[in-house]
Write a protein that binds this DNA or RNA. Structure first.
Ligand SMILES: Nc1ncnc2c1ncn2[C@@H]1O[C@H](COP(=O)(O)OP(=O)(O)OP(=O)(O)O)[C@@H](O)[C@H]1O
Length: 1007
DNA sequence: CGCTGGCCCTACGGC
DNA sequence: AGGGCCAGCG
């Protein structure tokens, strides 16, 4: 079938196996960047176009709103928007919400329910704690309650548990605390119930309740697909089972190493529970990484392998080693921000149009770290966007308007009501508020009923006796005249708005909101609040953005509120898709979307140059960028001082690093914002790690740009424009505060010619940066080059610096099997052999080499390791240096344009027979392999047929490289062959990748 | 009693 | 940046 073929285009064999699996339950377990999401997407397409499933009968769950958006885009490219809009696609929460809106009445749920967001929950909990005079911290209480809910423990169950503990005379203090929690928990649940609110956990809990008692709601569901399964919690697992109960067709993808949501009860063991629940589970592992450069992966791999409990797993780069990642120390956070921006501007200029601002991301452990960076970006007029963290919908002015809308929709929403009742000020202060709330409590009605009653004079509060100054007592109204007037004003706003909302009219939701804004006098209120014009502008712009967002939310064709049941699943062509539902419903849908999305979706204005993304690491999950900066990598920030799970913090760093495609920068300030001295994150401080980093950013030579274009699969700017860019760009080198990184002096490097030297500096964990002259111990990235540079190619000549006392290290490398080869390696052993063999051509000291390779493949040796490992030390023949025979090799060596490495030889007599052609060839090959036999690797020559780049120019480019460019950068390509980075997958009979076993994953998930 | 302004504290992560 | 708290004023 042609459509299937096109659907499978660009997938490797293992991915295809997962996509086309005839097994009903498929689980893809694979490392970052291996194409899990891509596979899941293709599987959806396969289920629809090959197996003929109806898109309306397929549930696709992602973990974040952003991921859902990304998935929607990818699917739309495959299937077209009409099909994709019918899918039940979204987060667990949004899908659950839709089921509850549609069928909630079956479980006595008022389907007009509102959603209690974080600040609602917080204020409810705080109020209860105050009312009961408890001592527990509201945030702790809220977290505990959420944990109970997501594990399925109800308030009653927990109360019983606690009671039984009391009888067992458990620790008195804990019992007391638990009793407080019991009280808050039940009070909280009660409050939600009477306000007709569901909190985030309730959406899942209630949906499960619905499906438990009415499984027929999902009778029509033919397939369930779930991304990022490692971050699902107990209830979500159960929901997955129930969603799929009719056909039991499930596809999940996940990676235990990327589990970063344990703090909200995500449970990695859900991965292993799949096997228990679905014995005929088909497990597919993917091993090739298509995202990142080899150097980035080496560094990231080294990080994750610090986790001792983690089994070794393989992760094969498909790209060349690429540019060395950077780890940089700066004097202060403000300087760190300056350096980042400087480096941003330098690299975007030097890459001559290869990149735009969209290609940069700055990933943060906590959102608060963004402020200095935002300021600096603003100073330089660089467009940026903050994702995650401090939320747009939590801004004062946005929140205020939203709360009004929520009260209009649901006057029983007491918390929202309490927040807006006296904003803008209406003489309804604390005193009045207390009177109103007490009255509501004693009458057992909502606050709204009291407000309405007083405003309409149907409720009159009896005056209370009060002692005046002269000692006499007299009767005083509980509600002052001014307060009463305020209540009337407020009631009027809500009431008339509500009437307007209900009446049939052609007005859109946007017009309605604008009307409400006027009615509130929001602009006037903001004018009074803001002291500066600029602030007002900003806040008003936010209000406008919210309104624009409402328009968008409503015009979205997908996410019909109600889930079409199976009878009506293929409804006759809608008379007119735009027939509006009632405006109340539209408003409710908008408010629901708001509560379930972190950020307002923003439209890009016109033809822009894109924007830099600033994001929390959590929110960056599943995404990728060509250039990634991770500032503030110091202890206390990451791992965060309040984090409970150190391993999870490490995985967080791993996730952040593996977002990068071509270039990765880590940095930290010497002093944190409170002037306290910081230390480099202990995840990064060991020599094993720092060896993977350089101190300064790349020089960005022509060949670097070319290599980046290969990694990014983009067309490479031509030589002329790159040269011109280099001519233009100032500064050309990354030297801002470089000296500080080197010796801790708070001074800026000015223009001088010592960069070349400083560029060679590498990290040393104990001494900071070691000047190149003193450095003798090097591994990994720069080893080969350095050894060549220094002519130190034998063990004897390589002395270890004292800071790197090596007895232990050497022992370690000697004791352990020298190479751990992943399970699947057997299939590609001949190739690997060549690669390993070639690596010894540099006569690197065996111990160094081993630990470097081991570091890549994991500490725990595989059983296959021993046999293969011997090969490392085998002598090699020149032939064996060619890892990809046939056409590829011929091309690589014959066409000057196809390999930079080949020029290295012409140029550099110090390495007469380096296996350099393999380097670029590797990445080319990898590309070719993933694109099938017909694929032409994007060499310059090929570009000339596709680009408006004429042959003479191409020749020029090739020539310029031969004659003019100093091929310093071939180093990294060369190094590619010294570690088993990637392998030419089309060189051997190719059952690579597809392994239907749990492999290394098994160990972890069966713990 | 309520409003306003100023001060300090405090910020992990997100559906 | 926002919330809580206090002082001073209407
Ligand atoms: N077979 C392939 N050939 C070429 N590129 C691929 C292939 N599979 C995936 N990619 C690319 O690799 C990148 C990462 O893919 P994807 O986001 O699906 O990985 P992932 O496993 O979901 O990563 P993560 O675990 O970080 O979410 C994407 O740019 C994707 O287009």
């Amino acid at each position: 079938m042609d459509s299937v073929a096109s659907m499978l285009e660009g997938l490797n064999a293992a991915q295809k196996a997962a996509v086309t699996s005839q097994s009903s339950v498929v689980q893809v377990l694979a490392p970052p960047g291996s194409g899990k999401t891509k596979t899941l997407t293709a599987r959806v397409a396969y289920l629809i176009s090959h197996l003929g499933m109806h898109p309306g009968n397929i549930i696709v769950c992602t973990f974040t709103v952003k991921a859902a958006r990304e998935m929607r885009e990818r699917l739309t490219a495959l299937l077209g928007s009409e099909t994709v809009n019918k899918l039940l696609l979204g987060t667990f929460h949004s899908i659950s919400r839709r089921f509850l809106v549609t069928y909630g009445r079956h479980i006595q749920l008022n389907e007009k329910f509102g959603i209690a967001d974080t600040s609602d929950s917080k204020s409810i909990v705080t109020r209860i704690i105050k009312r009961l005079g408890l001592t527990i911290d509201p945030k702790t209480a809220r977290n505990r309650i959420s944990t109970f809910k997501s594990k399925g423990t109800t308030a009653e169950q927990y109360a019983e548990e606690t009671a039984s503990k009391v009888q067992k005379r458990a620790n008195a203090e804990t019992v007391l605390r638990n009793q407080e929690i019991v009280a808050v928990y039940s009070g909280y649940e009660e409050h939600l119930r009477v306000s007709n609110l569901l909190d985030y956990d309730d959406l899942l809990v209630k949906c499960r309740e619905l499906l438990r008692s009415h499984p027929s709601c999902v009778d029509h569901i033919q397939a369930v697909l779930i991304d990022e399964f490692q971050d699902t919690n107990h209830i979500q697992f159960d929901l997955m089972r129930r969603f799929s109960s009719a056909r039991k067709v499930v596809t999940t993808v996940g990676d235990p190493d990327q589990s970063i949501y344990g703090w909200r009860s995500a449970d990695v063991t859900n991965l292993k529970k799949m096997k228990e629940n679905f014995p005929d589970l088909h497990v597919v592992n993917l091993e090739e990484n298509y995202r990142s450069s080899g150097a980035i992966l080496l560094a990231a791999q080294e990080i994750i392998e610090q986790d001792q409990s983690r089994p070794a797993k393989s992760l094969m780069p498909t790209h060349a080693l690429g540019l060395s990642p950077v780890l940089r120390k700066l004097p202060r956070a403000s300087k760190e921000a300056q350096w980042i921006v400087c480096e941003l501007k330098r690299t975007i200029a030097l890459t001559a149009g290869l990149l735009n601002w969209d290609d940069y991301a700055i990933l943060l452990r906590s959102a608060a770290l963004s402020r200095l960076i935002e300021k600096e970006l603003g100073n330089h007029g660089i467009p940026y966007r903050m994702v995650g963290g401090h939320r747009f919908f939590d801004r004062y002015e946005v929140r205020l308007l939203l709360d009004y809308l929520r009260v209009i929709d649901l006057p029983g929403h007491t918390d929202a009501l309490a927040r807006v009742l006296n904003t803008p000020a209406r003489q309804i202060g604390d005193g009045t508020m207390k009177v109103l709330l007490d009255e509501a409590a004693s009458r057992q009605v909502s606050l709204w009923v009291i407000v309405r009653g007083i405003a309409q004079d149907s409720i009159k509060l009896t005056p209370k006796p009060k002692r005046s100054e002269d000692g006499k007592t007299k009767m005083v109204e509980q509600i002052s005249k001014q307060a009463k007037r305020g209540l009337e004003t407020f009631f009027n706003i809500i009431h008339t708005s509500r009437v307007k909302l209900d009446e049939t009219s052609d007005d859109s939701l946007v017009q309605f909101i604008e009307w409400v804004v006027k009615k509130i006098g929001l602009l006037k209120h903001l004018k009074e609040k803001c002291t500066e014009e600029e602030e007002l502008q900003g806040r008003w712009a936010n209000v406008e953005e919210l309104i624009a967002n409402a328009e968008e939310a409503v015009t979205k064709e997908y996410e019909d509120e109600r889930i079409p049941s199976h009878e009506e699943q293929d409804p006759p062509e809608p008379v007119d898709g735009s027939v509006p539902r009632s405006r109340v419903e539209t408003l409710r849908k908008f408010l629901g979307n708001v509560a379930l999305s972190t950020e307002a979706e923003q439209k890009e204005d016109g033809a822009s140059t894109g924007h830099v993304t600033i994001s929390t690491i959590h929110a960056a999950k599943g995404l990728e960028w060509p250039f990634v900066f991770i500032p503030a990598v110091y202890d206390g920030s990451i791992p965060h001082s309040r984090a409970e799970d150190n391993d999870e913090e490490r995985r967080l760093l791993y996730v952040a690093m593996t977002r990068a495609q071509a270039m990765l920068y880590l940095s930290y300030p010497d002093k944190n914002s409170q002037q306290g001295a910081t230390t480099l994150s202990h995840f990064l401080s060991s020599r094993n790690i720092t060896q993977h980093f350089s101190i300064a950013g790349p020089t960005v030579k022509t060949e670097d740009v070319h290599e980046m274009s290969l990694i990014l699969r983009r067309e490479c700017p031509n030589v002329k424009s790159i040269a011109a860019a280099q001519e233009r760009t100032r500064p050309r080198e990354d030297k801002k505060f470089l000296k500080y990184s080197y010796n801790g002096e708070d001074m800026e490097y000015t223009d001088d010619d010592s960069e070349a030297e400083s560029k060679k500096r590498k990290w040393n964990s104990t001494e900071g940066f070691v000047p190149p002259g003193k450095r003798t111990q090097m591994k990994g990235f720069d080893t080969v080059k350095a050894l060549m540079d220094q002519g130190e190619l034998s063990t004897a000549n390589t002395t270890l610096p004292t800071s790197f006392t090596s007895a232990k290290t050497l022992a370690r490398s000697a004791d352990l099997p020298p190479l751990s080869v992943p399970h699947g390696a057997r299939e590609i052993a001949p190739v690997r052999t060549m690669l390993q063999a070639s690596s010894s051509s540099t006569s690197k000291p065996a111990s160094q080499q081993q630990s470097s390779i081991m570091g890549y493949f994991g500490k725990k040796a595989d059983t296959t390791a021993a046999s293969t490992s011997n090969l490392v030390l085998q002598p090699l023949s020149h032939n064996s240096l060619c890892p990809h025979p046939g056409r590829e090799m011929t091309e690589a060596s014959a066409s000057p344009a196809s390999s930079f490495a080949s020029f290295k030889h012409a140029d550099d007599p110090s390495c007469p027979k380096q296996p350099a052609p393999a380097a670029i060839g590797l990445s080319r090959n990898a590309l070719a392999a993933t694109h099938g036999p017909g694929f032409k690797p994007p060499t310059i020559a090929n570009h000339s047929t596709r680009l408006p780049l004429d042959t003479s120019e191409a020749n020029q480019m090739a020539e310029s490289r031969v004659t003019k460019l100093k091929p310093a950068r071939t180093l990294h390509s060369l190094t590619t062959t010294t570690t088993p980075l990637g392998y030419p997958m089309n060189a051997v009979g190719r059952s690579y990748g597809a392994k239907m076993s749990m492999n290394g994953w098994q160990n972890r998930t069966h713990k």
